[in-house]
Amino acid sequence: MTDPTSGAVLRGAVDLSALRSRAAAPAPAEAASGVSLVFDATDETFGQVLELSRSVPVVVDLWAQWCGPCKQLSPILEKVVTELAGRVVLAKVDVDANPQLAQGFRAQSIPMVVALIAGQPVPLFTGAVPEQQVRDVFDQLLQLAAQHGVTGTVPVDGADAAETDAEPALPPHHQEAFDAIEAGDYARAVTAYEAALAENPRDEQARAGLGQVRLLLRVQDLDPQQARDAAAAAPLDAAAQFAVADLDLAGGHVDDAFGRLLDLFAVLPADQRGPVRERLLELFALVGDADPRVARARTRLASLLF
C-alpha cells in the first residue's frame, strides 16, 4: 500500500469520473433489510458505491470466476471485513461482467484490490496475499481514512441494537469541538478545529466545522438592531457591513448577506476591496459551491473584478 501519510495516494490513481455520474440502481449495500458488509458491485451501481465511500472506506475486490488466486483471496477479504464490524465494506467486482469497471481500475491482472476513500481510489495490492498482510494493509487503510475524515461505520445485521444505534466515535479534536459547541464555547471549538487542520490540512469536515463555528463566534454577542443601525449609519464601514452579513447568513438570509457585501465591494476603492472579497469567499464556502445562490454571487463578483 502507498504510504498512508501521503496525500498523493488520493490523487490520480485511476479515473472514475465517468462512473461517478452514472445513474445507479439502489445500492446493494443499502438494502431495506439492513446493510451488507460484502456485496457485488456493477458498472450500473458503482456510482452509489463511490458515494458510500464518503462515509466508510470501501475495499474493491476485482476478480473472475476462472481466477484461482481470486478464490484463495476472496474468503480472506470477507473474513477480515466481517471482523471489522462495519468500519470497512467490501465491494466485489466480476471483471468479465463489468468491463467498464475493469477498464477504469486498469485491472491488467487479478485479483486486484483497491480501496475507495471519499470517492478517490487507493491502490492496495495485486495477487493473493497472506491473511496477516491483508490485516496490516487494512489497518493502514483505516488510518488513512481517518486522516481524510472518513470515519463512519455501517450497521451490521444482527448486531446488538445498542451497538448499531451508537454514533461512530469522532476523532479527538472533532469530539473536543463538538463538546465545546454543545457548551456554547465557540472559541474553544475554533481552537479544536484549527488543531485538527494542523494535523491534517485535508480534513474537510474540520474545515467546514471551523467556518461554521467562526460564524457563530462572530454573531454570538451581536445585538441585531444595533448592528443594523451601525451598518445603515456607515455604509462604507466594512466591519459594520460584515456584522450584518454574518447575521443574515446565520439567519438563513443568504442572498441578503451576499448582496450586502457585493454592493460594498462595488463601491470601495480597489485597494480596500481585499477584505470584502475574502469574507465573501468564506461565506461562499459555508453555503457550498453547489448552491445556486453561491453561483450567482460568484458571477457578480467576477463581473466586478473584471
Rank of each mutant, 00 (worst) to 15 (best):
residue 226 Q to I: 02
residue 206 A to V: 03
residue 168 P to D: 07
residue 266 A to I: 08
residue 71 K to N: 07
residue 301 L to C: 10
residue 165 D to V: 13
residue 288 G to N: 04
residue 151 T to N: 10
residue 199 E to K: 15
residue 182 E to Y: 01
residue 64 A to T: 07
residue 206 A to F: 02
residue 76 I to C: 06
residue 162 A to C: 07
residue 303 S to C: 01
residue 240 A to G: 12
residue 2 T to A: 10
residue 300 R to V: 13
residue 222 L to M: 08
residue 216 L to V: 12
residue 185 D to V: 07
residue 205 Q to N: 12
residue 101 L to K: 06
residue 143 Q to H: 11
residue 184 G to H: 00
residue 239 A to H: 12
residue 103 Q to T: 13
residue 291 D to S: 07
residue 195 A to V: 15
residue 35 V to Y: 09
residue 243 A to W: 02
residue 257 A to K: 00
residue 75 P to H: 09
residue 217 L to N: 15
residue 183 A to H: 01
residue 268 L to H: 01
residue 194 E to K: 11
residue 281 L to R: 14
residue 132 Q to V: 14
residue 37 L to Y: 02
residue 265 F to Q: 13
residue 35 V to D: 04
residue 67 C to T: 12
residue 127 G to P: 04
residue 56 V to S: 02
residue 7 G to D: 15
residue 90 L to E: 02
residue 119 G to V: 04
residue 39 F to W: 07
residue 15 D to G: 11
residue 4 P to D: 13
residue 30 E to R: 15
residue 107 A to Q: 01
residue 103 Q to M: 12
residue 92 K to N: 08
residue 25 A to Q: 12
residue 277 R to L: 14
residue 7 G to T: 11
residue 88 V to R: 00
residue 211 G to P: 04
residue 204 E to Y: 07
residue 267 V to R: 14
residue 144 L to V: 07
residue 266 A to W: 08
residue 19 L to F: 04
residue 134 V to D: 00
residue 87 R to I: 04
residue 192 A to L: 10
residue 236 L to T: 15
residue 110 I to K: 04
residue 271 D to I: 08
residue 58 V to A: 02
residue 80 V to M: 01
residue 8 A to H: 11
residue 136 D to Q: 14
residue 221 D to G: 03
residue 85 A to M: 06
residue 134 V to R: 00
residue 14 V to H: 03
residue 267 V to D: 11
residue 38 V to H: 03
residue 302 A to N: 06
residue 277 R to K: 12
residue 286 L to A: 08
residue 197 L to N: 09
residue 238 A to V: 14
residue 175 Q to F: 01
residue 212 Q to G: 12
residue 35 V to L: 02
residue 177 A to G: 08
residue 49 V to Y: 03
residue 278 E to Y: 01
residue 172 P to Y: 07
residue 170 L to C: 08
residue 242 F to G: 05
residue 139 D to S: 14
residue 179 D to M: 06
residue 210 L to K: 00
residue 5 T to P: 02
residue 33 S to K: 11
residue 83 E to Q: 15
residue 275 P to N: 08
residue 38 V to G: 00
residue 169 A to P: 00
residue 299 T to F: 11
residue 250 A to I: 10
residue 138 F to H: 00
residue 223 D to Q: 10
residue 153 T to Q: 11
residue 43 D to L: 10
residue 60 V to Q: 05
residue 191 T to W: 09
residue 235 P to N: 13
residue 35 V to C: 13
residue 140 Q to V: 05
